[in-house]
Design a protein around this nucleic acid. Structure first.
Lengths: 202, 202
DNA sequence: CGAGTCGTTGAACGGAATCAATCGTCGTGG
DNA sequence: CCACGACGATTGATTCCGTTCAACGACTCG
């Protein structure tokens, strides 16, 4: 995923301040003036809208390393609520500073576009992955897409639960799929990560 | 979805030439120099990679109105293959022309960033939608997100099959979900579109 | 007037979610 | 330093519902 890179990009051009949230704390509400973009250092922040009946509709769950509210750059107010799902730390990047940088430096603007385009591509790939119905197959393709080309290994940067959430699987299903793939000798699990035995992307 | 708007944006700044593809025709291959960005006028184009074993991995299915290969802007070569899934017409937008416009006009660059950011937001929303497991609920939330605020109606711009594909559902399941929602009096289907009876987003 | 596609409903199967329980590890505080 | 709690990883049993296969009417387009 390119999200961590985008977070680094934000930090580089804006120098954000940190903010610590406890579980359930509201970072911003719909209608409030949009002054910051955010990146998640630790924890998880969920963006939700509410129906007139009070039912919540989740727009996005930003996990560790991901950014959110980029659209705030082009909007006066936020259009959803941001709520911490657990104890979390977020970086706040002032919108005006980012806009100034983007307007003043064509190379920085190009960088930003590159990062957005990459994120679009990654999201579409992930979305396509969700259309693979068989769990072991979906996991295998995820691993193929994320494996290092040289070592054919996916490092343990994300926990199993986090990967399962990305893949839209229950974590039990993910572990079962991994166990099955290992039994079929398609992957090998070590402390370092998961190594692919048979396949690799051209 | 914002994709159609992005397509219009491309056309506005680049003036693309049309290209007609028959089913199975290859638009570009991985490794070829990236000279164009594309938008789908009619039909459907699929982006795929292949494993060393020859197994196809779909990266993205670009439907009518959507754009693809935006990442080509920042890459010398394409990193996947593009294949028409059926008889299709695509607009080809010369990369150099777009880059020149983006570099020369800060307002156009800002437009492009806005469109990319919107697309990121839409994709994340769609991704989140896939985590709703119950089909009627998923369909309901899709309708809530896409309904016109005034009329509370989703117009029939996409066919049922296309919506089902977006939602990651078999089309039969979508129709069953719609039938059930209508029986529960939550929606009303007319020739104009689908009207939401009870809910609406704040 | 066919051919093809969309919309719709039925029946049966399979597999993922869910509930539940266990084990290991890490950090924390007493 | 150890007891405790929290959480990740793992496996088992059961339920449920979405997929799949199948069939049919309606509609459009050539």
């Amino acid at each position: 995923m390119a999200a961590p890179k985008l977070a680094a990009f934000f930090i580089r051009i804006a120098g954000g301040e940190k903010k610590t949230l406890h579980k359930g704390e509201v970072l911003f509400r719909a209608g409030e003036p949009a002054r910051f973009l955010f990146s998640v250092a630790t924890g998880q922040v969920r963006l939700v809208r509410y129906t007139t009946e009070g039912e919540a509709v989740t727009i996005h769950s930003a996990a560790r390393g991901e950014t959110f509210a980029e659209a705030a750059l082009f909007s006066d107010v936020y259009h959803c609520h941001a709520i911490a799902m657990g104890p979390s730390v977020v970086h706040c990047h002032p919108k005006v500073a980012i806009l100034a940088q983007l307007a003043g430096h064509a190379d920085i603007a190009a960088d930003f576009m590159r990062h957005l385009a990459r994120q679009v591509r990654d999201l579409r790939t992930l979305l396509e992955l969700h259309n693979v119905h068989a769990a072991p197959e979906r996991v295998m393709q995820y691993l193929l897409l994320h494996a290092d080309a040289e070592s054919k290994t996916v490092s343990r940067t994300l926990s199993g639960k986090e990967i399962a959430q990305q893949l839209g699987l229950a974590h039990e299903t993910l572990y079962r799929a991994l166990a099955r793939l290992e039994k079929e000798d398609k992957i090998k699990r070590t402390t370092a990560g998961i190594t692919i035995r048979k396949f690799s992307l051209i």
